[in-house]
Computed example of a mutant assay.
Amino acid sequence: MPILRKLEISNFRGIQALSWKPSPGINALIGPGDSCKSTILDAIDWCLGARRSLPVGESDFFLLDTTKAITIIATVGHLADELKSLSRYGEYLKGFNLADGTIHDEPGLGLDVVLQLALRIEQDLEPQWYVLPRSSSTDLPIESLPRLPWSHRQLLSPSRIGSNSSHNLSWRRDSALAKLSSEEVSASDVLADALRNASSLSDLTSRMR
C-alpha cells in the first residue's frame, strides 16, 4: 500500500507554505478550529485523489491572491510494481531516505523508491496534475511532464473514512479495509466456509452421542 513520505503545500487556502514529513505509522493532526487541519487533508485528497476535475474557486488561494499558484507536491513511497515501471516512470523515480527524510534524484541502496506527484492551479483555475521531474529537469514545461493514467491514480487514491464510513468500514470494493488487506475478501466464500465448518461440527457431535 502506498505511503505518503512528504507533503509540500504552497498558497492553498490558509496555508502559505508547509513542508511535512509524516512519521511512520499513525499520524494525528491536532489543533484548534480553523488551524488548517482539514486543509492539509484536502491537499492530500486533491493531489492524489482519483479525480478528473476540482471545484476550484478564488477562495482556495492564500489571501485570495490568484497571482500566486497553488502548488501541492506529494512524495509517495512503498509503491506498487506498476508505479515503479522503468519504461513509464524510469526518469522520474527517486529515492527517499527514511532516516533523515531527504529526497535523492535517483533510487539507491537503502532508499525507498518514490514518485513525486504534483498539482498546480493558476489564475485560470484549471488544475494540472503531473509527475515531478528530477532536479536536473525542473525547467521542463508542465505540458511535457507525464500524467498518471486512471488505473495508476486509483492505486494512489486515499480514502477518507469520515466522509464515507459505511463504505470504508466494510469489505467492499475500493473500501479502506479492502485496500489495507493484501487478500481479496469474498463474503460468499466466508459464508460457505462457515457452513462447511458448522456441518462438520454437527456430524462430529452426532457420532460422539
Rank of each mutant, 00 (worst) to 15 (best):
S206W: 05
T39V: 15
T71W: 04
S144L: 14
I70S: 04
N168Q: 11
S166Q: 14
A187Q: 13
E8V: 14
W150G: 14
K68V: 05
I26L: 11
I103N: 06
E184P: 01
L63S: 05
I9F: 07
L132H: 08
S59N: 15
R134M: 06
W171K: 03
A192N: 01
G49R: 05
E143T: 07
I103G: 10
R5Q: 14
S87Y: 07
S38R: 09
L148S: 07
G95P: 09
E106A: 13
V76H: 02
L117G: 00
A69N: 08
A17F: 15
S35C: 12
S202E: 12
L119N: 00
I103W: 03
V131C: 10
A74E: 09
Y89Q: 02
I142D: 00
M1G: 04
D203S: 10
R51K: 14
D203C: 03
N97C: 07
I72N: 01
R5A: 12
S200H: 11
P146V: 01
L18Q: 05
S202T: 07
A176D: 02
R160W: 09
G95A: 06
R13T: 05
S200K: 02
D81A: 14
E58N: 14
Q154P: 07
L79W: 01
N197I: 09
Q116T: 00
L195V: 15
L86M: 06
S10C: 07
S151N: 15
S19P: 05
L195W: 12
P127S: 09
L83Y: 00
L83I: 04
S85H: 11
W20S: 09
I3N: 04
S19L: 08
L195A: 13
L111A: 11
K94H: 09
E183G: 00
P149M: 05
D42I: 06
P141M: 04
L4M: 10
L204M: 11
S85D: 13
M208F: 12
D139F: 10
R160P: 01
S38E: 13
R51Q: 12
V114K: 12
R173P: 06
L180A: 12
S182N: 04
W20R: 02
L7Y: 09
P146K: 00
W129K: 10
L145Y: 12
L115V: 06
L29K: 08
T205I: 11
S135W: 02
D203L: 13
W20T: 01
T66P: 00
D189S: 05
L115Q: 06
T66I: 02
